[in-house]
Simulated scan of single mutants.
Amino acid sequence: MSLESVRAWLAVHAPDIAIIDQGESTATVADAARTLGVEPGQIAKTLSVRINDAVVLVVARGDARIDNRKTKAAFGGRPRMLGAEEVQALTGHPVGGVCPFGLATAIPVYCDISLRDFAEVYPAAGSTTSSVRLTPARLADLVGARWVDVCQPPAVADAAAEAAE
């Protein structure tokens, strides 16, 4: 149903955008980048986050990480990732296929400025094997997203991950 909700949403709002179904997993950033033949940063991952009592979607480049300090400054609270069941219930999409299109409930969408590093990005399209290709500006315009700066740059995210190991 999730892929179908995205297909129906795109038919109304952006009929020129084709769904790419590779028939292979695009559920992780690494899988999506390999399957689509692009660099990991071009994967536009959609994060389902609770901040205080509000749920928001943050779309960011695939190799960026949420920065707690920046998120608290932008939204007034520390981000907490939602569990898979809550994500499915609120978005209508399975984890690995979450995108800001064809949502089951109205959820505010924010695009991190990290997406602007690329001419084209590839968000999921409601399933673990599907995606779409579009510009970051078009993505934000289509879903009425506000631009925010809530992620660590990839080099900082990589250094933080290495330090944690």
Rank of each mutant, 00 (worst) to 15 (best):
N68S: 12
V132M: 10
D112R: 09
A27D: 10
T71H: 10
D53W: 08
D31N: 13
A32P: 06
G23C: 10
A163T: 08
R61Q: 14
R80A: 15
L82Q: 09
N52E: 14
T129H: 04
G37K: 07
Q88A: 14
K45H: 04
D149Y: 07
G83V: 12
A125Y: 04
I17G: 10
V49N: 04
G126D: 04
L103D: 03
R69D: 14
D31K: 11
V150Y: 02
L82W: 07
V156D: 13
L139N: 02
Q152A: 13
V150Q: 04
W147V: 08
T46V: 06
I107N: 08
A18N: 12
A64S: 15
A157K: 04
T128D: 02
V58Q: 04
E162T: 09
M1R: 11
V49Y: 00
W147L: 11
A11K: 13
K70V: 05
G126C: 08
A64K: 00
V156F: 00
W147K: 05
I43R: 07
Q22R: 14
L36I: 12
A30E: 15
G83S: 03
P136A: 09
T105Y: 08
A33H: 05
S25G: 11
L142M: 06
E4W: 00
A106L: 08
T105M: 02
T128H: 01
G83W: 01
P79I: 11
A137F: 03
V143A: 08
V156S: 13
G62R: 03
V29Y: 02
F75G: 10
A137L: 12
C151V: 13
Q22S: 15
Y122R: 01
L139F: 04
F118Q: 10
L90H: 04
T46R: 03
Y110W: 05
F101R: 02
P123A: 10
Q88E: 14
I43Y: 10
F118Y: 15
D141M: 09
L103E: 02
V29I: 09
P108M: 09
L90A: 08
V58D: 00
V12P: 00
A54I: 01
I51V: 15
M81L: 15
A119E: 15
V95I: 15
L3R: 13
P94H: 06
G97N: 05
G144W: 04
V143P: 07
S25W: 07
A60L: 14
G37D: 06
T26G: 02
L103A: 06
K70N: 01
G76W: 11
I17D: 05
F118N: 08
P15L: 09
P136M: 07
D53T: 14
P136K: 08
V29A: 06
